[in-house]
Amino acid sequence: MVNDVDALRAIERAPLRTVRPQDLEPDLGHARRTIARLVDRGALVRLAQGVYTAPPEGRDGRRWRPTLEAAGLALATARFGNRNAVLMGLGAARHWAAIPRAIGVTIVAIPEAGRPPVSLDTGGVVHLIPRDIDRLDAVLEQNELGRALVTTPAQTLYDLLMKPGQGGLPDEALAAARHLRGQVRSTDLQRVVDTVGRANAAVRGALDEMDVRGR
């Protein structure tokens, strides 16, 4: 049906190939029924209630699943707007290869407070953490669904050390912080501290260690 094709093309053009039905309703009649048909045919995948993504490269959504980090960013982007979601903490550590295995949890910074964690239909839990997005040290990075913001290694190290319990895996967070230290210069970490305006003992210890190593 032409309606289905138009809907799919619109979703593929959306940020991170992900939309909510209400995003399509102004231009597409019966958006929810159209989306349900596309899901049944494998042209779309439901990430969580009311959020759908188009698999890249024409893959069959009945078999394809996105990575947890890409899915978390896509979900948050659809709900809060393009460039209003930043992969951070454990999620950013996974992106920067500081956590070598999938851990079933990711963290995305958003501009609103009071949002509960979301269990994805595709697997894993997304923790939505309120942050001032503009003050995060972040860069655009490519994932399988498109380009999205990820905190830099320095910002990620800072966040892991400041709140290792965020996401409920403190041991993994601290191990990731140890792996990230080799990627971060003391000047970069200090810039993050100066921007935020505070540092705990763990962050100060990391800065002291970097200074001793001459990084």
Score class of each variant (00 low, 15 high):
H30D: 15
H30V: 12
A31N: 09
A31H: 04
A31M: 08
A31P: 01
A31S: 14
R32I: 12
R32W: 13
R33I: 10
R33F: 10
R33H: 12
T34F: 01
T34Y: 02
T34R: 12
T34M: 03
T34N: 09
I35T: 10
I35V: 15
I35W: 06
I35R: 05
I35L: 13
A36I: 05
A36C: 02
A36G: 07
A36V: 11
A36T: 13
R37S: 07
R37C: 03
R37F: 05
L38E: 02
L38R: 05
L38N: 05
L38V: 07
V39M: 07
V39L: 06
D40C: 02
D40I: 10
D40Y: 04
D40S: 12
D40H: 06
D40P: 03
R41G: 10
R41I: 00
R41H: 06
R41F: 02
G42N: 07
G42F: 10
G42V: 06
G42W: 05
G42P: 10
G42M: 07
G42I: 03
G42C: 08
A43R: 03
A43T: 01
A43G: 02
A43C: 07
A43D: 07
A43H: 05
L44A: 05
L44Y: 03
L44W: 03
L44P: 00
L44V: 01
V45L: 08
V45Q: 04
V45W: 04
V45I: 15
V45H: 03
R46H: 09
R46N: 08
R46E: 14
R46I: 13
R46F: 10
L47C: 09
L47W: 04
L47A: 10
L47P: 02
A48P: 02
A48F: 08
A48E: 14
A48H: 06
A48V: 15
Q49P: 05
Q49R: 15
Q49G: 14
Q49F: 13
Q49D: 14
Q49M: 08
G50Q: 10
G50D: 11
G50V: 01
G50L: 11
G50I: 03
V51I: 12
V51Y: 01
V51P: 01
V51S: 04
Y52D: 01
Y52P: 00
Y52M: 12
Y52K: 09
T53R: 06
A54N: 06
A54F: 08
A54R: 04
A54Y: 08
A54H: 05
P55A: 12
P55L: 14
P55W: 13
P55K: 10
P55M: 12
P55V: 00
P55F: 14
P56H: 13
P56E: 11
P56N: 12
E57P: 01
E57K: 11
E57M: 14
E57F: 15
E57D: 15
G58T: 08
G58R: 11
R59W: 13
R59E: 15
R59F: 14
